[in-house]
Design a protein around this nucleic acid. Structure first.
Length: 667
DNA sequence: CTGTCGTTTATTTTT
DNA sequence: TAAACGACAG
């Protein structure tokens, strides 16, 4: 078999069409379970086998996970097909595969000096962003009670996504004027501390490309073939970025599913995918409509649900799979009842031979997980919850990282203010503010702190603390130049006596959520990541920090063994499970209350429901509860309209069995 | 500067 | 309900 036929083997006609149309714009609409990743990876392999040099290919995804998966699968594909190219002497180059943010960060490390930042810039996460915005609001004496910093943050983010620069936005009404003012100061602050937020990664890249045609040309010459995954989730700035990059060759391949766009609230703009044909009139459109995942019943139900949406591309999903079981719908009395029903059903199905890992419980909001967890614990089932607390958001991780970030970027006031008082050195907001105020652009905060130390007359706690901190940072900075990351991180932990510090905070005084020991464990996890980094990458601290910041969750599964999975519907996108439970299918919860008055948002909820339903391979079980405790008060709910949208002949109503707790349930 | 206590406010979240 | 925040006293 020649490499080409080998790469195309096992693909259906549509998939082959999508893979083989290598020149010009291509849009692939891939229904759930239609082999999207397959199509994408085979296309990349096909490009390479037909003579395209790997380094001329750029593939952009939204998540690190997706990028990793694509890399792996391409490696496997090329392994199996010893194409003349790979073996022809040149050291195997690889295509550039990464998230929007990491690709842009890479570009910016090379190009950002053109717009007055330095290349060791810090990347702020959302928490840093929020606290900075809040501080700015406070400095304007804006009542942060009245004007929620979070919503200001999201307004600013929205503006940035729309590529509206701070300088040119003024705002019309009172609120947007406030937004404009905060936005401007915020941006000045970022510049001063040589920091970028997530939006800047995209926005500044676009700005450089627009203002420096020769820079853009460089990347045109590099990337001849561009592939974009999950195109329905691109925001305006990402859309512009892609358009710029693809401008020259127009070899743009976008794949996605408008029906699975569930991130509108994160500025995803569904119009990008709906207007592709307008943007590229000669585009080839391929519909992947054969589903390899679900039973006919599940697919039909999903199809009927989504048919209630107005905004969508028409498609005909079909499958050769069996009809399978009917969809089970169960009404329960309250959330504990619901949880018990789920657990008993799992028990029943497991007794019939289902593996524990076959089950997933999906819910609209994290808050729903607790009742289910409790029921699972009571019956002794192992489970894992996906999502929730992100690794890098953990206090202990942020603490240690703040030292590393400060060493990497001496202007990073956010990291400075965190590190300087960990462990407590008697230095609080007031002192930090003074230093921040006195600090001149281009000077390190430590220098400024040193001069402040000298002005302090008496030998106070502050004076000693500040001096000690300065000395520590100096020593660590030296270390950073010579030593590996793991050694550096260990030094930070040792020299700050961090473990002791943790133990004093989390002394068994009160029943803390997490003990000091658990937090120390997390630090070990950080060291593990650093170790991997030491072994494979030779570039330094800056790129490690970048990777950590852009890497939300650290893969902590490692035991792919028998566990029931619990997660929100959002985090289930792209996954599949033999048996899917959707819990809390109630009006007000799913669809969520806040979406009920905005048709666009209601349609997004419906797409979310569509995503949930199509995760199921063999069996779907939907539950809703008449009563549910929400924020402490008991509320009565009606079954979700989405249940009513499933044709009745596909449904079996589970009745009779009572799953109430033995304890008294009060209302 | 730090810890405590009442008050407030609750989606989803790839980076 | 519960966690997160801000005001206030030490």
């Amino acid at each position: 078999m020649n490499p080409e036929t080998q790469i195309l083997a096992g693909l259906n006609g549509k998939q082959i069409e999508a893979v083989k149309t290598i020149d010009g714009p291509v849009l692939v609409i891939s229904g759930p379970g239609s082999g999207k990743t397959r199509c994408l990876t085979h296309r990349i392999a096909y490009l390479i086998s037909s003579g395209v040099r790997p380094e001329n290919i750029l593939a952009v995804t939204f998540t690190n996970k997706a990028a990793g998966e694509i890399k792996e699968r391409i490696a496997a594909l090329l392994e199996n097909s010893p194409s003349s190219h790979r073996s022809s002497g040149r050291f195997a180059a690889t295509p550039q595969i990464g998230t929007f943010h990491s690709v842009c960060a890479r570009i910016l490390r090379r190009e950002i000096e053109r717009i007055g930042y330095s290349r060791n810039f810090t990347i702020l996460d959302e928490g840093d962003q929020a606290s900075l915005i809040k501080k700015i609001m406070a400095s304007f004496e804006v009542d942060t009670k009245r004007y929620n910093p979070r919503s200001i943050r999201s307004r600013i983010s929205k503006l940035k996504t729309e590529l509206v620069p701070a300088e040119s936005y003024t705002g019309s009404d009172f609120y947007s004027k406030l937004v404009a003012q905060v936005y401007r100061t915020y941006q000045e602050n970022l510049k001063k501390m040589n920091a970028l937020d997530f939006d800047d990664l995209i926005g500044l890249t676009v700005r450089i490309f627009k203002s420096n045609p020769e820079t853009l040309a460089k990347y045109h010459n590099l990337w001849h073939y561009i592939l974009v995954d999950e195109y329905q989730d691109t925001s305006h700035d990402q859309y512009v970025l892609v358009s710029l990059l693809a401008q020259k060759t127009k070899n743009l391949f976008c794949i996605g599913d408008d029906a699975q766009s569930i991130y509108m609230f994160r500025e995803a703009d569904i119009r990008n995918i709906l207007n592709f044909e307008k943007d590229y009139p000669d585009a080839k459109i391929v519909m992947l409509e054969q589903n390899y995942r679900s039973t006919k019943t599940i697919l039909a139900a999903a199809d009927e649900i989504i048919a209630n949406n107005k905004m969508q591309m028409p498609k005909e999903l079909w499958t050769e799979n069996n009809t399978g079981e009917k969809i089970i719908v169960k009404e329960t009395l309250n959330e504990r009842d619901e949880a018990n029903f789920i657990v008993y059903t799992i028990e029943e199905l497991a007794a019939k031979g289902r593996k524990i890992a076959d089950f997933v419980v999906l819910y609209r909001t994290h808050a729903q997980s607790r009742a289910i967890e409790e029921a699972l614990i009571k019956r002794g089932f192992p489970y894992q919850i996906i999502g929730g607390i992100k690794f890098y958001e953990r206090r202990e991780i942020k603490d240690i990282l703040s030292y590393l970030r400060l060493i990497n970027n001496p202007s990073d006031i956010i990291s400075f203010s965190r590190a300087v008082n960990i462990p407590t050195r008697g230095i609080g907001d007031k002192t930090v503010e003074k230093i921040s105020f006195a600090n001149k652009p281009g000077h390190s905060l430590i220098e400024t702190a040193d001069s402040l130390t000298e002005t302090l007359s008496s030998d106070t706690k502050q004076k000693r603390g500040l001096a000690a901190f300065s000395k520590l940072i100096a020593a660590l900075s030296e270390k950073a130049k010579k030593e590996k990351l793991t050694a550096l991180i260990k030094s930070v932990i040792d020299q700050t006596n961090y473990e002791d510090y943790l133990k004093t905070i989390y002394a068994p005084s009160r029943d803390e959520f997490e003990t000091a020991d658990e937090r120390i464990e997390n630090l070990k996890e950080l060291l593990t990541v650093a170790k991997k980094y030491d072994a494979t990458k030779e570039d330094g601290l800056a790129s490690f920090l970048e990777e950590i910041t852009l890497l939300q969750n650290i893969e902590k599964l490692r035991d792919g063994n028998e566990r029931i999975t619990l997660m929100t519907v959002h985090s289930s996108k792209g996954l599949e499970f033999p048996v899917v439970f959707i819990a809390g299918m109630e009006e007000g919860l799913f669809p969520h209350n806040r979406t009920l008055f905005e048709p666009k948002e209601l349609e997004e909820e419906r797409r979310l429901c569509y995503v949930a339903v199509t995760r199921a391979k063999e069996q779907l079980i939907v539950t809703y509860s008449k009563y549910r405790r929400i924020f402490g008060t008991m509320e009565a709910n009606l079954p979700s309209r989405f249940i009513g949208e499933i044709p009745t002949h596909l449904v079996r109503w589970e009745a009779g069995k009572d799953y109430e707790d033995e304890d008294v349930v009060e209302y």
